[in-house]
């Protein structure tokens, strides 16, 4: 009797436990994401359609006017150019160097763990400290880089003043911080490649480089796609390095002629220095769309290259 009465209820509780609890367990993430991720995202979209300025008491609906203004804004295109340039200058050498370092670390080395952990060290340093130190290294009058150039008889460079020179300096900060991180990801992927492939190739008389090109790289394809996409997302959002490259001056213009102002920095200038929240939100959403498009392009290009 007791069994018959409690049966359906227990079955219901069992059903709830099986079907319901997974949702319950993942709920905290989605609730948090909704509050601190999704809501700001949608709210930013709404703000981008207004002319909200923090210093003015009223705001009005302006439709797509902010986006229309953005398309004809020289400073936005300048920032986009700088972003793409710094992204290319940092990502390409970074991933190539990471591949090479991973390949080296994959061999039998003495103190292998030491070297493997060592390449990650730049990544755990403070970005503020690193950027300020790099800015000193690239100083005009007493920077170490110009001192070295002088030693080999070259003229000093005003790194911050030039467009290409400032992009190179900022890219080096990114490369220095992220190469080791990507190398470790490649290394992990390399270790899943079956050893017998290399043995067979060696028997067939393939050299080190051929093995690297014909076995390692194709086998790493998904990992390369992953790192390329992640680097693209990071590269397009770059803001701390160009901001701190002109440290102390307190203004996010990215150089006297905006020569190293990235889109992220332009957003910061419009939003938090000029308080144009509507316009800054439009920049944020445009940047988001650009990143999505670039990630997709990146994905398909990387796929095609490896397939052919």
């Amino acid at each position: 009797m007791t069994l018959a009465r409690s049966g359906p209820r227990r079955r219901w509780a069992y059903q709830l436990d099986v079907k319901g609890s997974p949702y319950f367990y993942i709920a905290p993430f989605f609730l948090l994401f909704g509050a601190v991720g999704m809501f700001p995202l949608l709210y930013t979209a709404y703000v981008s359609l207004t002319n909200w300025n923090l210093l003015e008491p009223t705001r009005h609906w302006v439709g797509l006017a902010n986006y229309a203004e953005l398309l004809t804004d020289d400073y936005f295109w300048n920032a986009l150019f700088n972003t793409v340039s710094i992204w290319l200058l940092s990502t390409v050498p970074q991933l190539l160097a990471a591949l090479f370092i991973a390949h080296m670390l994959n061999r039998s080395l003495r103190a292998r763990t030491f070297f493997r952990m060592g390449v990650l060290l730049p990544n755990v340093t403070s970005i503020v400290a690193v950027t300020i130190i790099f800015a000193q290294l690239f100083g005009r009058d007493f920077g170490m880089v110009n001192w070295a150039l002088n030693l080999v008889g070259l003229d000093p460079v005003d790194w911050q003043a030039g467009t290409l020179s400032s992009h190179i300096a900022i890219s080096l900060i990114v490369i220095w911080r992220w190469t080791g991180y990507n190398a470790l990801i490649y290394l992990a992927a390399m270790q899943t490649i079956p050893e017998h492939l290399y043995e067979a190739a060696t028997l067939d008389g393939a050299g080190q480089f051929t093995q690297f090109r014909k076995i390692t790289i194709p086998m790493l394809r998904p990992t390369i796609i992953f790192t390329a996409v992640v680097s693209t997302i990071g590269g397009f959002q770059i803001i701390a390095e160009p901001l701190l490259f002109q440290a102390g001056t307190g203004n996010p213009t990215g150089g006297s002629d905006r020569q190293f102002q990235t889109v992220g920095l332009y957003l910061y200038e419009q939003g938090f220095s000029l308080y144009k929240f509507g316009y800054a939100s439009a920049i944020a959403w445009t940047l988001c769309l650009i990143i999505v498009v670039m990630a997709l392009v990146n994905y398909s290009v990387t796929r095609r290259i490896r397939r052919s």
Partner: peptide, 14 residues
């Protein structure tokens, strides 16, 4: 030298 920049600080010492 740009005021308040690190290079400006160095300028005092140098």
């Amino acid at each position: 030298l740009v005021g308040s920049s690190p290079a400006w600080n160095t300028g005092f010492a140098k």
